[in-house]
């Protein structure tokens, strides 16, 4: 099994609900707590497994805002695991989830240096490295209804921009949508082989803009005034 996420950049509205749900679940999960520093102070900061950035592609009038959620990519060739000197970082053979054993981590930060995606964050109060667990304490929980055995971020997404599944199964929903929509992994040139896939924004029909001004006396006075005014 190769479990991971698909994130639809065409659908994501950038509401940060996935990040909040992630924090809520994992703060009391196997790897919790996720410490906050000065949460109500002047410089609020803290540990998050999921962060949403906002990018703009192309320029006006063809520009588009792309909301960009990022968490651990659970890479196939995860350098964060190979560089770890203590054996705290490991990749599970059965489902490919990359985890940090909190009892072994010595907080040297080396794995975070090796991660190009910024998935790992040091918890300064426990002194250990923390990262997305793909909600490993949830997806196998027999006490939950089957449809709820998914990562918190996926369940909460109001736009259905996130999907969870097995990429080794060519007929799984995630494999199919990646095939159909041309999904891709980030920074392929570094050869980490990230499991998580991103679906590119769809091409939208171009909306016609009014071209030449209408003409007439009112319009020419306006243009004359515009030339006079110094801005």
């Amino acid at each position: 099994m190769r479990l991971g996420l698909v994130i639809d950049l065409d659908v994501c509205v950038g509401c940060h609900a996935c990040a909040i749900a992630c924090k809520e679940w994992n703060a009391s999960g196997t790897i919790g707590p996720l410490s906050d520093y000065q949460p109500y102070g002047a410089e609020p900061s803290g540990v998050w497994f999921n962060r949403i950035r906002h990018f703009e592609m192309d320029e006006y009038p063809n520009n588009k805002t792309v909301n960009f959620p990022m968490s651990c990519n659970h890479c196939e060739d995860a350098d964060c695991v190979t560089v770890c000197p203590t054996g705290a970082s490991y990749k599970r053979a059965e489902d490919g989830i990359v985890l940090v054993d909190q009892d072994k981590c010595m907080g040297c930060n080396y794995c975070s240096w090796a991660c190009p995606y910024g998935a790992r964050e040091l918890d300064r109060s426990s002194g250990t490295m923390k990262k997305c667990t793909l909600c490993v304490d949830r997806i196998y929980d027999q006490n939950l209804p089957v449809e709820e055995r998914q990562p918190s971020c996926v369940l909460t997404c109001p736009a259905h921009a996130r999907m969870f599944g097995d990429f080794d199964d060519p007929d799984s929903a995630v494999s199919r949508v990646v095939r159909e929509r041309g999904g891709y992994g980030l920074m392929p040139e570094l050869n980490y082989n990230p499991t998580n896939q991103y679906l590119p924004p769809r091409r939208k029909p171009v909306i016609e803009m009014s071209g030449a001004p209408k003409g007439g006396l009112k319009e020419s006075i306006k243009q004359f005034a515009n030339r006079l005014v110094r801005r």
Binding site: H16, A19, S45, W48, R51, I52, R53, H54, F55, E56, M57, D58, E59, N62, T65, V66, F68, P116, Y184, G185, L186, M187, P188, E189, Y198, P200, P201
Partner: peptide, 17 residues
């Protein structure tokens, strides 16, 4: 390549924190 949006210029609007 970091965002996979390779067909146009890309710039950061907000880091989200």
């Amino acid at each position: 390549t970091a965002t996979g949006l390779t067909r146009a210029k890309v710039k950061l609007l907000d880091t989200g924190h």
